[in-house]
C-alpha cells in the first residue's frame, strides 16, 4: 500500500521531468544549426581567413579553391575525393551575389546553394545550363523583389533568381575529375566560375 502511495506521489514529478525533457530536446534540436560551433559555414569562413589573411575580401567574394583531396580530415567531411572543389561565401547585406559560369567541357560541374547550417536551398548541374551558360543571382526577398519591379517588359531577365533563406550562406562548386590525371583540368573549371557582388538597382 505504501509503495503505491509513493509511486502516485512521484508520478507528477516524473511527468514533469518528461515534459521538460521534451521541451529541452525540441528546442536544442532547433537551435543546433545556430549554435553548432563547427558547421560548414564556420569551417569555410575560418579556411578563407587563414588562407588569404591579406586579401580576405576576395576570399570572401571570389571563389576559394579547396586543397586537393588527401588522406585525413578535410575541410568538410564526406566530400568526394574525385571532385575538385571551390566555394563562394556570400553575405547578402553587402548586395546580391551574381554567379556566372561558361560551360565548355562536357564533364560534370555541380553547384549547390547552402544556408550556414549546410542545408541546401537550390542545386544545379552543367546539364541545366542555358546555351552553355549558368547565370544566377542570389538575393534576399527584398533584393529579388526590387529586381523584378525594375525589369522592363521587352527584355526578359537572362539570369535565374534565387531567394536565399538567410543573409549568410555559401555556394559549393564541384567539378568531377574522371581520372586522377584530370584533376588539374577539373580545378580549372572550378576557377572559371565567377562570384561577385552585384550592384543593387
Amino acid at each position: 500500500m505504501k509503495l503505491v502511495d509513493r509511486a502516485t506521489g512521484l508520478l507528477p514529478w516524473a511527468m514533469a521531468t518528461l515534459l521538460i525533457a521534451g521541451v529541452v530536446h525540441i528546442v536544442s534540436v532547433l537551435l543546433m544549426p545556430l549554435v553548432a560551433p563547427r558547421h560548414a559555414y564556420a569551417r569555410l569562413v575560418e579556411a578563407a581567413k587563414s588562407d588569404r589573411p591579406a586579401n580576405a575580401e576576395t576570399a570572401r567574394n571570389g571563389v576559394m579553391l579547396f586543397d586537393p583531396p588527401a588522406p585525413g580530415p578535410q575541410l568538410l567531411p564526406f566530400e568526394d575525393p574525385a571532385m575538385a572543389e571551390g566555394v563562394c561565401l556570400f553575405d547578402l547585406a553587402k548586395g546580391p551575389l551574381r554567379l556566372r559560369v561558361d560551360i565548355d567541357s562536357g564533364d560534370y560541374l555541380g553547384l549547390s546553394f547552402h544556408d550556414p547550417s549546410g542545408a541546401i536551398f537550390h542545386s544545379i548541374t552543367d546539364r541545366a545550363s542555358n546555351k552553355g551558360k549558368i547565370d544566377i543571382i542570389v538575393g534576399d526577398a527584398r533584393q529579388i523583389e526590387e529586381m523584378e519591379t525594375s525589369d522592363s517588359d521587352e527584355t526578359p531577365p537572362q539570369e535565374t533568381r534565387l531567394t536565399a533563406p538567410s543573409p549568410l550562406g555559401f555556394v559549393l562548386i564541384r567539378a568531377l575529375a574522371k581520372r586522377p590525371s584530370d584533376y588539374e583540368r577539373a580545378r580549372a573549371s572550378v576557377e572559371a566560375v565567377s562570384c561577385e557582388i552585384e550592384a543593387e538597382p
Partner: peptide, 8 residues
C-alpha cells in the same frame, strides 16, 4: 548536418 559540418 550542422553538428558534423557537412555540406551534402
Amino acid at each position: 548536418l550542422a553538428r558534423r559540418g557537412e555540406a551534402p
